[in-house]
Amino acid sequence: MFRTAFGDLFGLDLRPDPSKEGRTGRNPFQHLSAALDDLVTAGVLPPERRPGAEYLAWSTVHGMALLSIDGPLRGTPPAMLEQLGQRLLDMVERGL
C-alpha cells in the first residue's frame, strides 16, 4: 500500500497526472503541506516552525515505512509495527 500511495507517481516539481489526483486535485505531499498550513492558521504550529516541516514529517514517516517493508524491521509482528508507527507519529507531532 505504501508503494502504491507514495511510489514514483509524482515529483515535488511536477504536476501528477490529473486522473490520479482524486477529488481534491492534490497529491499526498500537497495534502501534508496544506495540513501543516492549517495547523499554523489554527495556532497549533508556531509559524516560525512551519518552513520545511513537510519534508521532516514526510521523510520520517517514509523512512519508517521503508524500514518496515525492505529493511531490518521487515518481519516485525504487525502489532509491534502499529505501536512503533503510533509512537513515530507522536514524535513527529511533538517535534513540529
Rank of each mutant, 00 (worst) to 15 (best):
1 M>G: 05
1 M>Y: 02
2 F>S: 13
2 F>K: 05
3 R>G: 07
4 T>M: 03
5 A>S: 11
6 F>Q: 00
7 G>H: 06
8 D>F: 11
8 D>Y: 07
8 D>S: 14
9 L>I: 02
9 L>H: 12
11 G>V: 01
12 L>H: 15
13 D>F: 10
13 D>Y: 09
13 D>Q: 13
14 L>R: 15
15 R>W: 06
16 P>H: 07
16 P>L: 12
17 D>M: 05
17 D>T: 14
18 P>H: 05
18 P>E: 06
19 S>P: 02
20 K>N: 07
20 K>Q: 14
22 G>M: 14
22 G>K: 14
23 R>K: 10
23 R>P: 05
23 R>Q: 01
25 G>E: 08
27 N>K: 02
27 N>C: 09
29 F>M: 14
31 H>D: 12
31 H>W: 02
31 H>M: 13
32 L>Q: 13
33 S>G: 04
33 S>K: 14
33 S>C: 11
34 A>W: 10
34 A>K: 10
34 A>R: 15
35 A>K: 04
35 A>Y: 10
37 D>W: 03
38 D>E: 11
39 L>Q: 06
40 V>T: 04
40 V>D: 00
40 V>S: 01
41 T>F: 04
41 T>C: 03
42 A>V: 06
42 A>H: 04
42 A>C: 04
43 G>D: 09
43 G>A: 09
44 V>K: 14
44 V>R: 12
45 L>R: 03
46 P>T: 08
46 P>I: 02
47 P>F: 05
49 R>I: 02
50 R>S: 09
50 R>Q: 13
51 P>K: 13
52 G>L: 06
52 G>V: 12
52 G>P: 07
52 G>M: 07
53 A>N: 00
53 A>L: 02
53 A>I: 02
53 A>T: 02
53 A>S: 10
53 A>D: 00
54 E>Q: 11
54 E>A: 15
54 E>F: 01
54 E>W: 06
55 Y>W: 12
55 Y>P: 01
55 Y>L: 15
55 Y>F: 15
57 A>K: 01
57 A>S: 13
57 A>Y: 01
57 A>Q: 01
58 W>L: 12
58 W>N: 04
61 V>A: 14
62 H>M: 11
63 G>Q: 04
63 G>L: 10
65 A>Y: 00
65 A>C: 12
65 A>K: 00
65 A>G: 08
66 L>A: 11
67 L>N: 08
67 L>G: 04
67 L>T: 05
68 S>F: 11
68 S>V: 11
69 I>G: 00
69 I>W: 06
70 D>K: 15
70 D>Y: 15
70 D>H: 12
72 P>D: 15
74 R>S: 09
74 R>V: 11
75 G>E: 10
75 G>R: 08
76 T>M: 10
76 T>A: 02
77 P>I: 11
78 P>A: 02
80 M>G: 00
80 M>I: 12
80 M>D: 05
81 L>R: 12
82 E>W: 07
82 E>T: 15
82 E>M: 07
85 G>M: 13
85 G>P: 15
86 Q>D: 05
86 Q>G: 00
86 Q>M: 03
87 R>A: 12
87 R>L: 14
88 L>V: 14
88 L>N: 09
89 L>R: 08
89 L>K: 01
89 L>G: 03
91 M>V: 01
91 M>E: 13
91 M>P: 00
92 V>Q: 02
93 E>R: 02
94 R>A: 13
95 G>T: 10
95 G>H: 09
95 G>Q: 08
95 G>F: 03
